[in-house]
Nucleic acid binder design. Structure first.
Ligand code: FES
Ligand code: FES
Lengths: 140, 140
DNA sequence: AAGGATTGATACCATTTGTGTATCAGTTCT
DNA sequence: AGAACTGATACACAAATGGTATCAATCCTT
């Protein structure tokens, strides 16, 4: 399940992708525009920074912007950055997990298949795709 | 993410699907065979009973068995029964949820698409499919 | 040099969820 | 009567979730 945190991360990056490139956007603007609790967003942006999805500038007129073009940032990367656990369909599929039933477990394999399909799908959607859809939206 | 509870539910039903039909299997047998904590399993079986996936018999030599043929029980139903939340990719997709951004939210639509694909996949896998794969497994 | 606006890095907090355990009542077969 | 079951709850505890608060560091403008 996509958590609020992940949802907020997507929203924030989407806003950046829709705006003028190479301009700093402050967390407070992002928070109000995308309806995200300010302090929570701050912490999320830190994480996105660590994962190299955004770069930031301190000081007055500082803020945050995309670290790379929206065309090469996938939904997979975003979810992965915001909540690495969400990508795993079952604990038994996680890296380094040891499950006593793993060798002979038919569920394991089946879930692995489904997870693979999900990942492929997430990989195929870029931030630019989302931004494009957003532009085509009729104003409410 | 598939919780332990859901995983246990699948395991239990799989065991029933692999055994002789129309025989009562006790929770203690299921627990030991499928490596599920007994008391936890008891509670899960209750839920599966409510959702009409199993029927039960009290008293000595009682137990539980599939309520319908394994061919018509889908993975979707099982996950739905064990953990209804797990089926939802985002809170904003849940029934009766009201999100201030829903009308103009591009993430909403995208996640709805992905969720739809996931559901289709879960619908297409039956307990009988899992049981068949299990039979074909080489003994470890 | 001062002051305001901004991020960096943590620490804290309340509530819910996940994963069990325990208890007792009711049922059925021998 | 008694053993082996299920039905229905209640309890317990750790982790995750969603959010808040604080303080330091940095940068721009005046
Ligand atoms: S339950 Fe762990 S691998 Fe299937
Ligand atoms: S965030 Fe609620 S609908 Fe998109």
């Amino acid at each position: 399940m996509i958590t609020r945190e992940t949802d907020y991360a997507i929203r924030a990056l989407l806003y950046l992708a829709c705006g003028k490139p190479n301009t700093w956007v402050s967390a407070s603007v992002l928070a109000t525009q995308m309806e995200i609790p300010y302090r929570f967003l701050r912490r999320i942006l830190l994480k996105l920074g660590e994962m190299k999805l955004v770069v930031s500038a301190r000081g007055k007129y500082g803020g945050v912007r995309l670290a790379k073009p929206a065309e090469v940032t996938t939904l997979y990367e975003i979810v992965q950055a915001a909540d690495p656990q969400a990508i795993m369909l079952n604990i038994c599929l996680a890296e380094g997990e040891v499950c006593s039933r793993a060798v002979r477990c038919v569920i394991h394999d089946e879930l692995a298949d489904i997870q693979q399909a999900l990942h492929t799908r997430l990989h195929s959607i870029t931030l630019a795709d989302l931004a494009a859809k957003d532009q085509n939206r009729l104003p409410v």
